[in-house]
Design a protein around this nucleic acid. Structure first.
Lengths: 131, 131
DNA sequence: CAGTATCCTACGAGATACTG
DNA sequence: CAGTATCTCGTAGGATACTG
């Protein structure tokens, strides 16, 4: 008898694959930069250091929770630095680290591709939708 | 009296920003390639055309639903082509289009950055977590 | 100013079953 | 073989209120 159903086999494969994916550097990067707000923060900081309040204004529509969470993750990964000035009220500046700056070209490349091919995609979508 | 609370103002900004983001080509691309399975499918097809069943085997752990959904989206965007051979049983081949191939370098660039900097990120995370 | 701490919900995504 | 059609569940992410 079949002690392994197709579902069971796929389940095992999924678990193994999840582990593999979790270690895949490319996936980790994609998980990170695909985050809704990450690229926007990166972009905002590309021009130079920014204060927390500046970021929340420049990146209109972001909630406090998501901005803080995004910044924490980026800081944790060593992509941005956080500098606290203990005045009253406190002042916090965020800036790209060297590592963060080295990532910019990659993001720019993606942005460039997107801008130069978005029309083709729109055409493809329209064609696909009218059938 | 304040007819506009901070929350209301942010809400308006969020709506406007959502609309802006929805039109941002870079965001659309990121939304697309950050999809869990998209990069894997792209990668699998980089070597040449594949049948549906081949893809589901090569990309172990993917469910039928997600594979189909991923392929449909890629097809809709004109990144992959779908060729049906009406034999019995039917045979379906997927392949990258020219547009799809032009995207590969971008994905490769991201992959290359990830692989050469993943160690720095791990170091940063470890440092961050032990404080 | 620059955040925590909670609560809540819409949606992504897997499991399962069925089909031309 | 190559898909659809449903159902369910976890969680990302937003709203809201409070704080050093």
């Amino acid at each position: 008898m079949a002690t392994q159903t197709a579902a069971q086999r796929r389940e095992e494969a999924r678990i193994a694959y999840d582990a593999y994916l979790a270690e895949c550097p490319a996936r980790q990067l994609l998980d990170r930069i695909s985050d809704k707000w990450v690229s926007l923060v990166l972009n905002a900081l590309a021009g130079g250091p920014q204060r927390y309040s500046d970021l929340s204004r420049v990146i209109a529509g972001v909630s406090q929770k998501m901005l803080t969470q995004t910044l924490r993750n980026l800081e944790r990964d060593g992509l941005v630095s956080r500098a606290v000035t203990p005045s009253v009220p406190v002042r916090v500046d965020y800036a790209l680290t060297g590592l963060g700056e080295s990532l910019l070209p990659v993001v720019q490349a993606a942005k460039a591709w997107a801008e130069s091919h978005i029309d083709e995609i729109h055409v493809a979508r329209t064609a696909y939708d009218h059938r």
